[in-house]
């Protein structure tokens, strides 16, 4: 137990040292941002931290890190730990929130929507905004798309990947689809989120309850 703890701390120190040496001059000593963006919000526009840190961000100053995959994993954990936890009190009732979640959110979030575990650490305001104005800021890798294929069928879902020859989609039933562009008549990107707005459908008390419930989904 003691040994394991020491090992853990040593690894954490490694990650901190790596971060200090290779990242802090752009992202700030505590991740507060500088030449690179703030890493303390717990929101990552590029999604998967491992991939971002491993490969860098094309066309920006964010370099591919020079470290082993294990180190990159540790760096990703370290970056997550830089996120400020939102500790503001919430008034909602988590059990009521759970019921609301099951009724309104769960089915979709378990097929096409993003995993909501940990989402509440980004703050109550963010969750509230996500519920009321889903299209405002799209979770990376979750852009909605609607594609008309040659036989007249329409496929709606999340755009998983795309190049000039094909497009990969998770459709609204959760099925993975890969379509060649040669067979596509029209691509509609005008509605960026699949999530409906709950403005006018959920009141403040219900939203507080949902936030309280989501906080427990760590």
């Amino acid at each position: 137990m003691w040994l394991a703890l020491v090992a853990c701390t040593a690894l954490a120190q490694d990650a901190a040292a790596l971060y200090r040496a290779q990242c802090s001059y752009c992202h700030g000593a505590r991740g507060e941002g500088g030449r690179g963006p703030d890493l303390t919000t717990g929101r990552y526009k590029h999604g998967d931290l491992f991939t971002t840190i491993r490969n860098g961000v094309k066309g920006t100053e964010m370099p591919a890190v020079r470290a082993s995959d294990d180190d990159v994993r540790r760096l990703a954990e370290y970056v997550k730990s830089l996120a400020r936890v939102d500790s503001a009190a919430v008034s909602g009732d988590p059990a009521f929130g759970h019921a609301l979640y099951e009724a309104n959110c769960g089915a979709c979030h378990e097929t096409v929507g993003p995993d909501l575990a940990g989402v509440a650490r980004r703050g109550a305001a963010f969750v509230r905004e996500s519920i009321l104005e889903p299209g405002k800021e799209i979770a990376m890798g979750y852009r909605a798309i609607r594609v008309m294929v040659k036989d007249g069928a329409a496929i709606e879902g999340i755009r998983l990947n795309e190049d000039d020859t094909s497009i990969q989609i998770r459709d609204t039933r959760g099925q993975l689809r890969s379509l060649l562009k040669a067979g596509i008549v029209e691509i509609d990107r005008s509605k960026p989120s699949l999530m409906p707005s709950f403005a006018g459908r959920l009141d403040d008390k219900q939203i507080d309850a949902l936030i309280a419930f989501l906080r427990e989904l760590r």
Partner: peptide, 9 residues
């Protein structure tokens, strides 16, 4: 000095 590299983000 190097420490001052940061741009306000």
């Amino acid at each position: 000095p190097d420490a001052a590299v940061g741009r306000p983000f």
